[in-house]
Computed example of a mutant assay.
Amino acid sequence: MSERAKAQEETRQRIVEATMHLHEEIGARATTISAIAEKAGVQRLTVYRHFPDETAVFQACTSHWLSLNPPPDPASWGSFDDPRRRFDAAVTAFYAYYASTRRMWVSSHRDVAEVPALQGPMAEFAGFVAKVAADLTGAFKIGENRAQKVEATVGHVLAFPTWDDLEQRNIPDSVKVGLAGSWLNGVLGS
């Protein structure tokens, strides 16, 4: 790689990291191109040279953040034959993930309605959570009517706002997972 290309890539990376830190610190809604440029130590024009618009820089930021903070891997609980153990393992993994990435999720959930560039990535993550909920529900041998209720409950349990509400109430992690299991038991009729 030539020195010029290397310098351009380093500048681009500084812009992406500056955006990521600003999103986490002040939120996407308050993050301006000027603030990104200042935090990255470049001119506004330099930001625009690397990213034609806010959506492009937000997409690069999201990709970078997810590469550093990948969501829980369904393979980590997929080996459990018992659907209840699978559920508990998935909830534990999601709650540990949310605990380690809380700042970004809080600001993203707060700002998503007002920042169009954030809506796509948030919808993608919601789709991922919905797929995990459907897969976890499918492991239970239940009728279609109960399956809808179980899937809705599991989706609610896995959603960041549910975890965050419990976190704000200072509920310990093991109790959070136990509560989730109680909700599941209730809808399963156990």
Rank of each mutant, 00 (worst) to 15 (best):
A117K: 03
R146D: 05
S174C: 09
A133M: 08
G120W: 08
Y98T: 01
K176D: 03
Q59Y: 09
A18M: 13
E114R: 08
A113K: 10
L45R: 05
P83V: 05
R102D: 10
T31S: 14
G189N: 12
A28E: 05
T55G: 14
E151I: 01
T55H: 14
W163I: 11
N185T: 10
A134Y: 09
A28C: 10
T153Y: 08
Y95N: 00
R44D: 04
K141S: 09
D173S: 15
A133T: 02
T162Q: 07
F87T: 01
A180Y: 07
A180F: 10
R110A: 06
S34V: 05
K149Q: 09
S79Y: 06
F51Q: 09
V91D: 00
Q8A: 15
R29I: 01
L158P: 04
L136P: 06
R85E: 14
A130I: 01
R12N: 15
E54W: 03
R4S: 12
F140G: 00
T55L: 13
L184D: 03
A117Q: 04
E38V: 05
T31Y: 01
L66E: 06
G189F: 10
A75R: 08
A40F: 04
W77Y: 06
S182F: 08
G78A: 15
P116S: 15
T137V: 06
